[in-house]
């Protein structure tokens, strides 16, 4: 049996127009409360703003990617097999978080948690590979301070990495806090917000592997 968080119920009541009219499609669990709706929209707005933040770093990177007075060239640095593995891992983790949300909507709590744990593990391995990669570059003489290209590269890719790290902290908190809780209209929006964020992190990576790594080889 499902129970609604009292918070959620009062919201539904407080906003009479929220009650789904007859014949209308009912919202899924993360969207029944006013809070849930606000969260969903809020995360989307945040994502829209962050897109422009990343766009600015991309633009700076594109302007400076040939500005390398000293240090190795992108062609000599990037190793496509490693980047491909990282890409596959992050893509898969985005997909596992989709599965988590699908199970959440069916109120399958343990399946949802299972998929989220998998998402966390994949995200964590991505982060480890990125640390390995950066470390490797530093040994080759491509550092944050070695050239304008270096700063632009780490500003962009490192900023993305920081988003992955933050996402992992967020997900860990979610999992710990809700380890013993049911899926309710109070907890569901939290999971859904995370999944939107996580997809966005993956989405940015699609442009990173294309514009930074692949174009670094041919551009």
């Amino acid at each position: 049996m499902t129970t609604t968080h009292p918070n959620a119920m009062s919201d539904i009541e407080a906003h009479g127009h929220e009650r789904s009219a007859e014949g209308e499609v009912q919202p899924t669990i993360e969207l029944v409360t006013q809070e849930g709706k606000n969260k969903q929209l809020g995360v989307w707005l945040f994502i829209a703003a962050e897109s422009v933040l990343f766009a600015s770093f991309f633009a700076v990177y594109l302007a400076l990617r040939h500005s390398i007075p000293n240090g190795p060239q992108p062609k000599d640095l990037f190793e496509l097999p490693l980047v491909f593995v990282m890409t596959a891992i992050l893509l898969t983790s985005s997909f596992t978080s989709v599965m988590a949300v699908m199970n959440m909507r069916q109120l399958k709590s343990s399946a949802m948690k299972g998929w989220l744990v998998l998402t966390w593990l994949l995200g964590f391995s991505f982060l480890l590979l990125e640390i390995y990669e950066f470390n490797h570059y530093v040994h080759m003489g491509h550092t944050f301070t070695s050239s304008a290209f270096g700063t632009a590269f780490y500003s962009l890719v490192g900023f993305h990495g920081a988003h992955v790290a933050f996402g992992l902290l967020w997900l860990m908190t979610l999992l710990l806090r809700n380890a013993r809780r049911e899926i309710t209209p109070y907890t569901a929006p939290k999971v859904y917000s995370f999944s939107l964020y996580w997809h966005f992190v993956d989405l940015v990576w699609v442009f990173i592997f294309t514009i930074v790594y692949l174009m670094g080889k041919v551009g």
Binding site: V60, P69, A148, T151, S155
Partner: peptide
């Protein structure tokens, strides 16, 4: 980027380092 250049050795606005 300004903060990186001022406090962390960034080169984005340093012409000698290839900056613009």
């Amino acid at each position: 980027l300004m903060i990186y250049d001022q406090l962390f050795g960034g080169q984005v606005f340093n012409v000698a380092g290839g900056g613009n």
